[in-house]
């Protein structure tokens, strides 16, 4: 399933223009850059920028998650907890202990990465649904701690967060936020392309295929799985922290089960093992509910129906399906 679309431009074969255009490294990155640069020209106001910013945050998280789910084949149903924990760590450290913004952000990432590193070994030993269950369990424990420790986190009602301050400059303006997060998305995308096309990446894809085969070929399976798990958790924590700063408020449902499911759906809907797909999936699922509000009470009914139909008719995900279609047309 991770086959043709993400195939790197191989050295041995003669590369034609189509390979370059459709390669994630060149075509993908260039398109992403263009879209990110152009978007501010077409949107305006608090709300439209808010949606754009949420798309950027989700896309960055989903790319990292896709490395774990799409490439390494390890489903995580607790990823929102890493996002939420990153957010809460930043929120608590800056508002209750007066830490500087960046230090708090870093502390959140380190905390989550450490938890992920410690838990990686026992959790990643599990397979399939058992793995999903273990990540769900870990996520729920984090979520429950966040809701219970009211003195620290404000409990179920959430807590306010101060603005992001970087070297004496307070980031308030939506446009500034947009550029910061767009930059981060580009970096994440670049990083992911490099990981995917590196020997590590090939090892990861081997994992998704068959673990035993990967093991036999001398790939250190456990090591790479752990690495990707920690990376994706850390990225989620970073984005969670930035989200807390940006929105000025954080509530437990950002760490909840439904949010975890939503992140996985973004991965699958966009296309497993497709980095561009992750961005499209994140954008689709962030923007879609905003349009569905016209259905009023029928909103969730329609949302569920769209989810079902998309998976039935595009099981490989939005981008790989589209990609396959275009390739076929171009011959």
């Amino acid at each position: 399933m991770s086959g043709n679309m993400t195939a790197p431009v191989r050295g041995g074969r003669k590369t034609n223009w189509k390979d370059v255009v459709f390669s994630p490294r060149y075509g993908g990155l260039a398109t992403l850059l263009l879209v990110l640069l152009a978007t501010p020209l077409f949107i305006e106001g608090l709300y439209q920028f808010d949606i754009a910013i949420l798309v950027l945050i989700n896309a960055t998280v989903v790319i990292a998650l896709n490395l774990l789910v799409g490439y390494a084949g390890q489903v995580s149903l607790g990823h929102a907890a890493f996002f939420g924990l990153g957010g809460y760590a930043t929120a608590v450290l800056t508002t209750r202990y007066d830490w500087p913004s960046l230090l708090a952000l870093a502390a959140g990432v380190v905390l989550v990465a450490a938890i992920a590193a410690v838990m990686a070994r026992p959790i990643l030993r599990l397979k399939g649904y058992y793995l999903a269950m273990a990540t769900l369990g870990l996520g729920m424990i984090i979520y429950l701690i966040i809701t219970q420790e009211t003195w620290l986190t404000g409990g179920p009602d959430g807590m306010s967060v101060g603005a992001l301050e970087v070297f004496g400059y307070t980031v308030f303006d939506e446009l500034v936020w947009y550029w910061i997060l767009a930059g981060l998305l580009l970096v994440m995308y670049w990083l992911a392309v490099n990981i995917v096309e590196s020997p590590v990446g090939r090892a990861l894809r081997a994992l998704h295929g068959s673990e035993i085969a990967a093991d036999n070929s001398g790939v250190n399976v456990t090591h790479y799985k752990t690495l990707v798990f920690v990376l994706s958790a850390g990225v989620a924590a970073l984005m969670g922290g930035l989200y807390a700063f940006y929105s000025g408020f954080i509530a437990p449902n950002t760490a909840g089960f439904m949010h975890s499911i939503e992140l996985v759906v973004m991965v699958v809907l966009g296309g497993m093992a497709s980095l561009v797909g992750s961005i499209v999936g994140a954008a689709l699922l962030t923007i879609l509910p905003q349009y569905l509000v016209v259905f009023s009470e029928y909103e969730w009914l329609v949302y569920g129906l769209i989810l079902m139909l998309m998976m039935i008719f595009m099981p490989r995900g939005f981008v790989p399906t589209l990609h396959g279609l275009i390739r076929r047309v171009l011959g």
Binding site: V75, V265, L301, Y303, G304, L307, M308, M311, I312
Partner: peptide, 28 residues
Amino acid sequence: QPAKNADAIQLIIITVGAALFIRGVAHV
């Protein structure tokens, strides 16, 4: 059934969609 050869994870998401749909109908 219409999803035929989809992998487990796609089928799970179909059930998530179905759950939201059923809940939505019940709400209405």
